[in-house]
Amino acid sequence: MIFLMDNNGFKGRDIISIRDFSKKDLLYLLSIAKRMEQSPDTSLLNNKIASLLFFEPSTRTRLSFDSAFKKLGGKTIGFAQAEVTSVKKGETLWDTIKMVEQYSDVIIMRHYIEGAARLAAEAASIPVLNAGDGANQHPTQTLLDLYTILKEKGTLEGLNIGFLGDLKYGRTVHSLAIALSHFNAKMFFISPKALSMPKDYLDELKGKNIKFTEAEDVAEVSKQLDVLYVTRIQKERFADALEYEKYKNAYKLDKSLLKISKKDLIIMHPLPRVGEINPELDDTKNAVYFRQAGNGIPVRQALLALVLGKIK
């Protein structure tokens, strides 16, 4: 039994969905990420090869994984878009994975089809990390969000977390809310009615006894927030241009927000932003979104080292 607990069962494991993580898994992973950041081992992944299979382009995610793996001494192979692959020649994903697993120790995959990552994991005998599957999951984003909150606030327990923007389609919001439900967070969903949190997710949170409030204006709840997680709001999502005009400015944050917030509020954003956060906030101590992106490196390093069995 003790042997099974070694490495918390991460060795050989696929990282597909945030739903696959228990609270214990999350805390263990975040502790390893901290170790990676504080004392990096540049030879940890010597002689290991990662395949980066990006069927859909995502430069930032690909570079982050590439950098994370190479900083630990590993090598990467792969492609950055589907045009150059055998997929265009009609090969199934299943067959592509069966081929690629012969060449590498771990697969990091982004795909435009939902569920592609789970299928790749079913096909592969080596670990698969999901770097985004369509509108479904992007677990490493959620994990780096958690790591950022833990680092900035010193705890994940019992925080008041605001989510602002497009909560209907925003998968980062959905996944982070699910992850934070392990930590007794109180949640504030701030959005136009047309872009509010889907009922399935609210039902799931209710089922877990998570307290939440819905609001349309950040000013209604800002005084209570420890964290404000902002997402892009896109004009195309509104059926009615007038409707968009009505909300546009309510979701453009600037320094006036700080006057109606806790002093130690942190503002997060998965980036890229399109105007919902005024750059005048960038050099305030509240803005953590650039550091948040950087936190992707230790978190991805921790995952890769764990699934490759390099952390004991």
Binding site: T92, L93, I113, E114, L119, E122, G134, A135
Partner: peptide, 14 residues
């Protein structure tokens, strides 16, 4: 059958 047309199970024989 999955009701999501963009689900991998509707794209490949699985």
């Amino acid at each position: 059958k999955c009701s999501n047309p963009n689900c991998i199970t509707n794209q490949e024989k699985v």
